[in-house]
Amino acid sequence: MALDPNKIALCWPNYIERATVSGGRWLATLPLEHVQDRRFSVVSKSRSLNLADTQYWITLPKRERIHALAMPAHNLSAFATVRARVYRDTAGTDLIYDSGWQNVWPVLYGLDDVVWGDDNFWNRRLSDDDRLNYTPLSTVLFSERLLGSSVHVELSDPGNQDGAVILGRVLITDIWQPRRNLDYNVRHGYDSGTEITRAGDAARTGYARRVTPKRTVSFDLNNLTEDEAFMRVHRLQRTQDVVGEILYLWSPVPSPTNFARAMVAHQTELNGITHPYHGNYQHAISLLEIL
């Protein structure tokens, strides 16, 4: 079934840790297997920008329901493209889906971010010198839910100033969208983490220990069916706990505002599922970004 553009999407579980990754050419000290490490700072780095070096295979131990590929913590430039092909078999001969070449970075500028005369006035695409101001996250959403055994990912970025592709993590996941979308009063924000120490002088001068803020979101799902409550939400709590990765998408449609809210996150608490009246279940979810 195609994804609904008017609903959130919660993407899990991440099959990458049970998969076998192979292909391409990666530094011996920063091998491809590092994308299976949950720490985004443990990276893989290609030997060059040649297309043969920057591609890789994900082979699953058995057929799984997969709907999305995501690559956070990458160094791909503003002009990079990605292609993902899904195969029914592990040998990569029975093709069931081809994403075609897609831009790694979606349009990130609004109409107020560009002025007449800017090089990107008409397409509003990200400029490479502004790329570091955004949290890197590339997503490829498949047109439907697939039952696949292997995925071939190709990355094309010949103009990358680093001279290589760096990947901090890969997610290959299923997607769930609730039958009825979340309620209003959604709360998107930041967990700052910055600490300010005050001096003992008259001005009480502040010295900040600044860190990167992490995005947060809290929302209520107040119209769940019994199946959604216990076959989806309850399972989410059991399998992901407060450490497991969840790819949160406000909408599967690429846009500047949707990208601003898209993140890989974990639950901050496991709230109970309530049953306020017949045929209705409710649950509150709070997520904190993983960097």
Score class of each variant (00 low, 15 high):
V170Q: 01
L171M: 15
I172Y: 09
I172S: 08
T173V: 01
T173R: 08
T173P: 11
W176H: 04
W176K: 05
W176M: 11
P178H: 04
P178I: 07
R179P: 05
R179E: 14
R179D: 12
L182S: 13
D183W: 09
N185A: 14
V186L: 13
V186R: 12
R187H: 01
R187N: 10
H188L: 11
G189Q: 01
Y190Q: 05
Y190N: 01
Y190L: 03
S192G: 12
G193A: 04
E195T: 11
E195W: 09
E195V: 08
I196L: 02
I196Q: 06
R198P: 05
R198I: 14
A199M: 06
A199H: 13
G200M: 11
G200E: 05
D201L: 00
A202G: 15
A202Y: 10
P213V: 01
P213I: 04
K214T: 00
R215K: 15
R215H: 00
R215P: 06
T216Y: 08
T216R: 02
V217K: 06
S218E: 15
S218T: 09
F219W: 03
D220R: 14
D220V: 00
N222C: 10
N223K: 11
E226K: 13
E226Q: 10
D227F: 11
E228S: 11
E228I: 06
A229V: 10
A229K: 01
A229T: 03
M231V: 07
M231S: 13
M231E: 14
R232Y: 03
H234R: 15
L236P: 00
L236Q: 02
R238Q: 15
R238K: 14
R238D: 12
T239G: 00
T239I: 00
Q240P: 04
D241E: 00
D241N: 12
D241W: 08
V242A: 09
